[in-house]
Design a binder for these strands. Structure first.
Lengths: 203, 203
DNA sequence: TGCTAACATGAATCCTGAATCAGTTTCCAC
DNA sequence: GTGGAAACTGATTCAGGATTCATGTTAGCA
């Protein structure tokens, strides 16, 4: 029953986008359940009723925030690695881009952990979409002899994602830092290099 | 203002423990916010008022559940690796024990992701306590030349924890399986072995 | 048997906050 | 400059659920 459905003038577009940003911030700060619509509309500088012109419900906003940022992140990662040659250098560029993006969206980092009970599908999809692309890229690299064989490629993808997620969490959330420190990034490079490099020079 | 404080007869102990178990289950199923006290007391087979004889609040129960299970997990991991010789075999035993324990406590796996906004300290402490012990063990192994040097040992600990967490999530939560499949465990063994093994036989 | 403290009950209270709605304001095409 | 559609407003409604409380039940001990 969204009143302002597909159309949206420039003005409406701006308001929607302000709500989206306020939502990201407030959800990140207070968590989904403790974030009130009033908090969000205050943050966006509109009245409470305005909220429902753009989103069906609080949950609907949450979905929109995660979906929107998910697109951005995946596009960002694709762009950051596209020009890099070789899977291992691509991994390093990918981790750097991931940490950079997450540092700029720390709220989202926290939102995601909250998302499972707001919308289970949403939460799974966030990781699955990342994992699917990742798995495919890794499999190609293995087939091309660029990186070492593994028993299960999908597990490799999840393992690498887990590394990124936890190291980001350690610094950006636990310590509330604005960046992941270089020595942490360097450590990941070492690990990835050792874990993925083919045993002998590829033939 | 907990009525039945430190004393607790056998009967009281039993009731408390039933509430704790019901809490773990219901929090895991519905999430912290959607779990009602009524759900929990139903699950435990007691009346609503009884809840407040044992816990100050819903949040207090959450804390108790996480703290109690945290102790169990750490004890379990310590026990599973104690008799194993060598850091890399210890890692394999540790991952196996972690997956086994998590499979038996899938609710907790989901609860944790929810815990950040219920009690931030609680959430951080869960990982920090694991990471601190882990970091110490890895540093010792590096000093002993058992595993390869890394730039930052704590990052290594978080990276390994992230691998375990994500692979557990993939199978136990996303697929709702009762175990992590052997090929996933084998893949992790390969990765850990490659990432940690010293380049040349240790001197 | 009767007494007391521990344990248990569940209806009633009370507050929070999502969603609604009856109107008001802005914008632009004509 | 006027009509109407698109935006916007914020007080009000309403349901859900955490917590309380007045009261009942059990178990062990003199």
């Amino acid at each position: 029953m969204r009143a302002v459905a597909a159309s949206l003038t420039a003005r409406g577009e701006r308001t929607r986008s302000r709500l989206l940003e306020a939502g990201e911030e407030v959800f990140g700060l207070r968590g989904y359940h403790d974030a009130s619509i009033a908090d969000i509309t205050n943050g966006a500088g509109v009245a409470q009723g305005t909220f429902y012109l753009y989103f069906d419900s609080k949950r609907d906003l949450m979905r929109a925030v995660v979906a929107e940022r998910g697109h951005e992140l995946r596009a960002n990662l694709a762009h950051a690695t596209a020009a890099v040659v070789g899977r291992i250098p691509k991994e390093e560029a990918g981790f750097a881009a991931f940490f950079g993006w997450m540092a700029r969206h720390r709220a989202l980092c926290r939102i995601l952990r909250n998302a499972e009970y707001v919308d289970g599908e949403l939460y799974r999809d966030w990781y699955r979409q990342l994992a699917d692309g990742y798995t495919h890229a890794l499999r190609t690299a293995i087939d091309d002899g660029e990186i070492a064989q593994v028993e299960d490629v999908e597990t490799l993808a999840y393992a690498l994602m887990g590394i990124g997620d936890f190291v980001a969490m350690r610094w950006l959330i636990f310590e509330d830092r604005r960046t992941v420190p270089p020595r942490a990034v360097a450590t990941i490079s070492q690990l990835v290099d050792r874990a993925l490099r083919t045993p002998s020079p590829a033939g």
